[in-house]
Simulated assay, not measured.
Amino acid sequence: MNVVLNEALTRRELRVPDGKISYLEWGADEAGKAPLHFAHANGFNGQTYRRILEELSDRFHIRAWDARGHGATRLPADPATHRNWYVYRDDLIRMVEDFAEATGQKVILAGHSMGGAASVMAAAARPDLVRGLVLVDPVMTPWSFRYLLMAFRLLGMKGGPMSLADGAEKRRAVFPDGETIVNRYLGRGAFTTWPRGFLEDYVAGGTRLRDDGQVELSCAPAWEAANFRAHGHNISKAVRNLNVPLALLHAEHGSTCRGSFPQKLKRRDPGAHIMQVKGSTHFLPMEFPELVIQEVRDFAARLEAEGR
């Protein structure tokens, strides 16, 4: 099913064995543009980043998915059985296989937070499909955090590494309308530093109308919480196996790209631009959208200059 949202933007679906992945697409009818896929953070959706991606659509053929359990995508998402993010890696590989086939080119993968981690794992598994990576504060935590998280879960403990999951699980899911959500979230909690426009796009792409006329968050609070707890994947191994060019922007405050991971990424690509963005939080794309736009453009220029 294709839904034309405006003259430049279309929502499409990719059929996969267990359902359909919904994604936004810019520039599909314009030949010669470099393919770029953008993967969003936990609890968000592709439309959240519309203001960034539209600015890039003059140069790139863009797809931005709604990951499993998010937005308009309809794939099984059972919190009770969710243990790691390999499912996102595998879903993303299917997306990139289709994108590469459609364009006849390798794809640049960009991603924020969980989307950055999924992009790293997909690139490590299928470098034949991936031209390079642009990572915006990807979730990369050391093995000690993963084991601490597992210990808390096994013992049924709250707080500590479980705090984000505990908070997500309590999130209200049903509201009278989208405007109510925007007004409730604006300037509060995780959305403290978000401009209103980004929040409006997040709500527009991340809610669905119920039969009773109210709206509901498309990413169920239980699924968002399960993602915060599901760290059974090995991101360190994926980084060790990376063999593609990359760029990294990471936050100054509350970064999820922790410990030595920026240095590890630099070792995988000595030519990589690695930058900690002063004054930024984990929500760097919303706080410094122009910087993210320029980073993607500069990365593509580097690839071209190097003949990649």
Results as ranks from 00 to 15, higher is better:
E101Q: 12
W65T: 06
N6Q: 10
R196F: 03
E101N: 09
G307E: 04
A272E: 02
E304Y: 10
P161T: 14
A220L: 12
I108S: 00
E216A: 09
K266Q: 13
E216G: 00
H273Q: 14
S255Y: 07
Y23P: 00
T192C: 10
Q294S: 15
L9S: 09
A165K: 05
D166A: 13
F38T: 05
L291D: 10
A168W: 03
N2M: 08
V16G: 04
I181Y: 01
V215C: 06
Y86M: 12
L14S: 01
E7G: 09
A151T: 14
M140F: 15
S144W: 13
M121G: 01
A39C: 14
K158C: 12
R302K: 10
A165P: 06
Q47L: 15
A222N: 09
A124T: 01
L133I: 04
L9I: 09
R267K: 14
L217W: 08
R83E: 11
Q47R: 14
R302E: 08
Q105I: 06
L209C: 02
K33Q: 10
R131G: 01
M140Q: 11
Y88H: 11
A247Y: 02
T73Q: 06
A125W: 01
A151N: 10
A190G: 08
A64D: 05
P262Q: 11
F261R: 00
S218R: 02
A72D: 03
E306D: 12
S163P: 02
P138G: 05
W223R: 05
A100I: 06
V277S: 05
G116W: 04
V107I: 01
S22Y: 00
T207D: 03
Y49C: 07
E295C: 12
K237S: 10
L154Q: 13
A31G: 07
N42P: 04
V203H: 01
S57L: 11
A8W: 11
D66H: 00
P76N: 12
A272K: 02
G167Y: 07
M286R: 05
P127W: 02
F60A: 13
G259S: 15
R268T: 02
R63G: 00
Q263L: 12
R126I: 07
G307L: 06
V239S: 03
H231M: 15
V292S: 11
A72H: 04
F191K: 02
F283S: 12
H231R: 14
A238E: 03
V215E: 00
A124D: 04
A102F: 01
F191P: 00
N241G: 00
L56N: 04
A123H: 00
H250Q: 07
R172M: 13
L242F: 01
H82F: 15
N45W: 01
T207N: 05
G307D: 03
A305W: 08
W143P: 07
G19W: 10
K266S: 11
V134D: 02
E290L: 13
L291E: 13
D211W: 09
L53R: 05
A190R: 13
S163V: 13
F228R: 05
A225E: 10
Q105L: 09
H282N: 14
E216I: 08
I52N: 03
F191G: 04
F99L: 01
V16I: 14
N84K: 10
D212C: 06
F152W: 14
E200I: 02
A230K: 03
